[in-house]
């Protein structure tokens, strides 16, 4: 008899792995119960898959434990620990904030009187989904969040930065030159394309630099072969606030299922629709059947868009919003 073979305990059929520690799960034991038994602090509430307080992130969690979550959360491996009965070992994310990485400025281009289009070349690997955002770290330690307009395949990070009066970080980054180093960390955010239904109509509405995430989301959907119509409505106070129009026109010419519309509150020319952005977007959208909406810009306008589109019939589960909040001084 080989003592080595008999002495070794049977390989557990289910387990969770967290920060170098493996916690075997008993038969019929959920991830939440396993964590609690191991003395690891894990928030929980209803323990029946509705309240979402026990949400965790991991690699390929069981589909059942992701059932009631939004597609963007599912795509990032979020799941409900109380509903998770993994087969094999489930690797849990540590939940720690991402480390800063270095980038080099490739260009700073003025695209509107107060908006610069900044291209950064990351010096380390930086995985993200277009439409997510990152933090730019100012040498003083201050940080500001900006959405990503480019695709991973572009190999640069494109940000649209509006210069805020007396804004510490926005003024600083507007004055940077090619070749200078900027630290970033991320990505963050739940506003991005998930290719779960290629026929869905996508309605992208944003004001000001809310264009940045929308541009990333539209390009991402198109590159991933989205077949349904994609309508992008960019809003601003008056025509000169709407920027990167040549690039948007070119994109719409390249992709037959993409339409780009412009909307202003005043002084519209033949190139723009005039009126409140929420009302114009609803009118331009036509049918809201099988529609997913992405709404980006300052928090106030995003809240208005969310409410108006919800009342017009888009389901709350199909609205992805990225409200920009001003930095606290």
């Amino acid at each position: 008899m080989n003592p080595d073979r008999t002495a070794r305990p049977a390989e557990p059929s289910s387990a969770i792995h967290l920060k170098g520690r493996t916690i075997p799960l008993a038969a019929g034991e959920s991830v939440l119960e396993g964590l609690e038994r191991a003395g690891i602090e894990a928030p929980s509430g209803c323990r029946a898959g509705t309240c979402c307080k026990c949400m965790l992130q991991g690699e390929d969690p069981p589909a059942m434990s992701q059932r009631s979550l939004r597609p963007t959360l599912r795509a990032q491996g979020f799941f409900l620990a109380c509903q998770a009965y993994p087969i094999g070992t489930l690797e849990l994310s540590s939940g720690e904030a991402p480390e800063p990485i270095d980038t080099v400025i490739q260009s700073v281009e003025a695209v509107a009187p107060d908006v610069a289009r900044i291209l950064l070349r990351p010096e380390d690997s930086f995985a993200f989904r277009p439409g997510q955002y990152l933090d730019v770290l100012h040498p003083s330690g201050a940080l500001r969040s900006y959405s990503i307009a480019s695709l991973p395949s572009d190999q640069v990070l494109e940000l649209h930065v509006r210069r805020i009066a007396n804004g510490l970080v926005s003024s600083w980054i507007h004055e940077q030159n090619e070749g200078q180093r900027v630290q970033i960390r991320g990505p963050f955010g739940q506003c991005f394309h998930v290719a779960d239904d290629e026929q869905k109509r996508l309605l992208l509405v944003g004001a000001g630099t809310g264009l940045a995430p929308l541009l990333g989301i539209a390009r991402d959907a198109l590159e991933q072969g989205h077949k349904g119509s994609i309508k992008l409505v960019h809003g601003g106070l008056q025509p000169d606030r709407l920027y990167m129009r040549p690039q948007l026109s070119e994109l719409a010419e390249t992709w037959p299922n993409l339409e780009v519309e412009h909307c202003v509150l005043r002084e519209a020319t033949e190139q723009e629709h005039e009126g409140p952005l929420d009302q114009v977007a609803i009118r331009l959208a036509g049918s809201l059947e099988n529609t997913r909406a992405f709404l980006c810009g300052d928090a106030e306008i995003v809240r208005l868009l969310q409410r108006s589109l919800f009342l017009a019939g888009i389901s709350s589960a199909e609205m992805f919003a990225d409200p920009f909040s001003p930095a606290s001084p």
Partner: peptide, 24 residues
């Protein structure tokens, strides 16, 4: 001026609770 996603989550919990479903 309320956060709509947060409101929807709370109201879902309320509807679940008053119909005898699992709600914290």
């Amino acid at each position: 001026n309320v956060d709509m996603d947060g409101q929807i989550a709370k109201q879902k919990a309320f509807l679940t609770y008053v119909t005898g479903g699992p709600a914290a």
